[in-house]
Design a protein around this nucleic acid. Structure first.
Lengths: 262, 262
DNA sequence: CGCATCCTTGAGGGCCATCAAAATGCGTGG
DNA sequence: CCACGCATTTTGATGGCCCTCAAGGATGCG
C-alpha cells in the first residue's frame, strides 16, 4: 500500500491541482511518483464563471480537464429542454471520456465559479503508452462515471421525485466527503432548484414542493447555497442510497488492481 | 486505415468469436494483428440459458465476457424491483467494466439463450501493458456504455413511456445493424413485455397499453420475438432518436484515435 | 432603489400506477 | 391429439403523482 500511514488530506496540500483525484477511491494505490507525474500533466489553469460551457457536445477535444475547485454538470439537450446526467466535484477529470471517444456526446457546464486545469490529450496518450498502471486508474475513473450513470438510471426509473432529490443530495454529500469538502451536517453547493429539477427529470415547480416536503419531514434542508441534514442515516435510507456504486475505499477494493500496484 | 476495401461482414466469418467487436464503430481502426490477438484471447466458450445470471452484483470478477450470440441485460435491483440499465448485443464485452473496477455494481443476465466467450483478466492486463492501441479500444468500448447510459438517463427523465419504448427499439435496431443482425424492416429480440417495462421504468400493464398504441399508430409492431417497423424514419423521429451517441463510424470518428492507429 | 433572477403558491388535468381478473399462447404429458 | 398448467399478454376501473399555466413574493446586484 503506497501511503497507508499518511493522512490523505496531505495530498490536498502537496498536490494543489490534482491532489483530490480518486481521493477516497483508489488514490491509495498511487505511488508517490505517479502522484507527481499526474500533477505535472496540468499545463495550464483557468477560472470559469457561472454558467460557462467548458465543452460543447460534438466539439473535437484536444484537452482533458481536471476540476480543481467548483461544481460542474454534464448536460444533454432534447427538444428544448436540458437534462443533467451527472455532476462533478473537485478532483474529477470532467471530460476524460473525450480521450478515448474523441468527442463528447454531452455538454459540460459550470454551476457557480470553477477553477480547472488542462491536460493535453497528447500527455494522456503518453501515460497510456508508458504508465499502464496510471492509465488503468484513468480508465477506472471514467468507469466510476458509468457506475454513477447506472445508479441515476435506476433512480429515475424507480423513485418518486422527493426520493430522487434525496438521492442526489446523498450522492453529492458522499462524493464531497471523499475529497474533503463536506461538513459533518451537510455541504455547500451552488445548485439552484432548476438545476436539481434538471438532474431529477422534474419541473422546477414540483422540485420546489418536494424540497419543502423534505424540509418539513426533517430529511434535508436545502437553501440557496447549502444543504443541511439533521440525520444522515434518515436521509440515506429515505433515498434508498447505497454508496457501494461509488467504489469508495471502505468497500472491497478491486483485488487485481491492488496486486498490480507495484 | 486498416481494412477500408474489405467487406466488414468478412470479419464475422473470419473471427467467429470476436468478429463483431466494435463492428460499425472503430473496428476499422484495428489492424489485422490486433484482430487476431483479440480472437486469441477467448480461452473458453459457453452457452447460457434464458434468465441465467452471468455476473452477480458485487461478485469479484476474474474473467471478462464476450457476447458471441444472444441478448443480455445489465440490471440493478432496488426495493424488490428490477431495473435494466442497458442491454447487450453480439460483439459486446458485457462485463469489461469489471477489469478496471474489480467488481461490478450490477447483474448481467441472459434474455433468451446466449453464447459467450471468456477472457481472463490476466490477458486483458497483458494487453494494457503491451498493446496500448488495443487497450485504448477496450477503454473506448466501455465508454460507449457510459454514453448509452447518458442517453437512457435523458430518455427516462424527459420522454413519456411510449417514446421511451420507441427509443429502446431504435437503439436495439441501430446496434444490431452495426453487427449485422438486423432486418431491413425490423429485428428479432427475445425481450418480453416485462423486460421492456424494466428498461423503461414502467409497469408491464402500462407497457402493454403503450405497445398497442405504437402498433395502432403504425410506429412499431412488437410481437413475441420480433419488432417490425413500417417506416424507420417515423420510429426514430417519434422516439427523438439521434444515433450520434452510439459513435458509429458514419459519424465523425475520433481524430486522435485515427492518428494513433499506426 | 429598480430590475433580474430565483423561489413560492394555487388550480386543474393527464399520464401512469395499482389492483384485479380474464384471455391468449406455449410447452409438456397424458 | 387433446388436456392441462404456467407464463405472458390483455382488459377494466380507480386514484395519485406530477405536469402545465399563471401569478405573486423574495433575494441579490448594480
Amino acid at each position: 500500500m503506497a501511503n497507508s500511514i499518511m493522512d490523505p488530506t496531505d495530498d490536498f496540500v502537496r498536490f494543489p491541482l490534482t491532489g483530490r483525484f480518486l481521493a477516497g477511491r483508489l488514490r491509495h494505490d498511487m505511488s508517490e511518483a505517479e502522484k507527481q507525474k499526474l500533477e505535472s500533466l496540468v499545463t495550464e489553469t483557468r477560472t470559469l464563471i457561472d454558467g460557462e460551457l467548458l465543452v460543447r457536445r460534438g466539439d473535437p477535444c484536444v484537452n482533458t480537464t481536471m476540476l480543481i475547485d467548483g461544481f460542474m454538470l454534464r448536460t444533454l439537450e432534447n427538444s428544448e429542454r436540458r437534462h443533467a446526467v451527472s455532476f462533478h466535484v473537485p478532483g474529477d477529470f470532467v471530460d476524460l471520456h473525450s480521450f478515448p471517444l474523441g468527442r463528447l456526446d454531452h455538454n459540460i457546464e459550470c454551476v457557480g465559479a470553477a477553477r480547472v486545469g488542462f491536460v493535453p490529450h497528447a500527455l494522456i496518450q503518453e501515460i497510456v503508452n508508458e504508465h499502464p498502471h496510471l492509465a488503468r486508474l484513468f480508465w477506472f475513473s471514467t468507469l466510476l462515471d458509468a457506475a454513477m450513470h447506472r445508479e441515476w438510471i435506476m433512480t429515475l426509473g424507480q423513485l418518486p421525485v422527493p426520493k430522487r432529490i434525496a438521492h442526489v443530495f446523498a450522492e453529492i454529500w458522499a462524493r464531497l466527503d471523499m475529497v474533503g469538502r463536506a461538513f459533518v451536517d451537510g455541504f455547500q453547493t451552488p445548485l439552484r432548484q432548476i438545476d436539481i429539477a434538471d438532474m431529477c427529470g422534474a419541473t422546477p415547480v414540483h422540485v420546489n414542493r418536494a424540497l419543502m416536503q423534505l424540509r418539513k419531514d426533517g430529511i434535508a434542508d436545502f437553501r440557496r447555497g447549502e444543504v443541511r441534514v439533521a440525520n444522515r442515516a434518515v436521509l440515506e435510507s429515505f433515498a434508498e442510497f447505497d454508496p457501494t456504486y461509488l467504489y469508495g475505499s471502505h468497500a472491497e477494493a478491486p483485488v487485481t488492481l491492488r496486486q498490480a500496484t507495484r
